[in-house]
């Protein structure tokens, strides 16, 4: 596939739209006391990063399914590692 400047630009915009939406969902559903824009795309979500825990992971799994129709399984929990990993997974698995 030939990548034109326009198509690359469109892809980048789509990607930013998706990551912005994921951040908004995380902040809203987990009632986080932080502005969504302050979450960076590669920041770890759990532990020292954003400080999420396993209880949040359960909630996040459910809302990713609700919002995107994409199922997360016990053995692919690493996709919750960062916004970018989550966005990759959602893009690959959304039909």
């Amino acid at each position: 596939m030939l990548l034109t400047y326009a198509s690359v630009k469109e892809q980048a915009e789509k990607r930013r739209e998706l990551t912005t939406r994921i951040k908004a969902i995380i902040v809203d559903r987990l009632s986080l006391d932080i502005e969504p824009e302050l979450i960076t795309d590669d920041q770890p979500l759990f532990g020292r990063g954003l400080g999420l825990d396993s209880i949040d992971a359960l909630e996040l799994t459910v809302c990713i399914e609700d919002e995107f129709g994409v199922t997360l399984y016990d053995d692919n929990m690493e996709v919750l590692g960062s916004i970018n990993k989550l966005a990759d997974y959602i893009t690959e698995n959304m039909e």
Binding site: S54, L58, E59, T61, V62, D74, M77
Partner: peptide
């Protein structure tokens, strides 16, 4: 009972 992740269930 809803979704389970690891030991947790909602």
């Amino acid at each position: 009972f809803g979704r389970s992740v690891g030991l947790l269930t909602m």
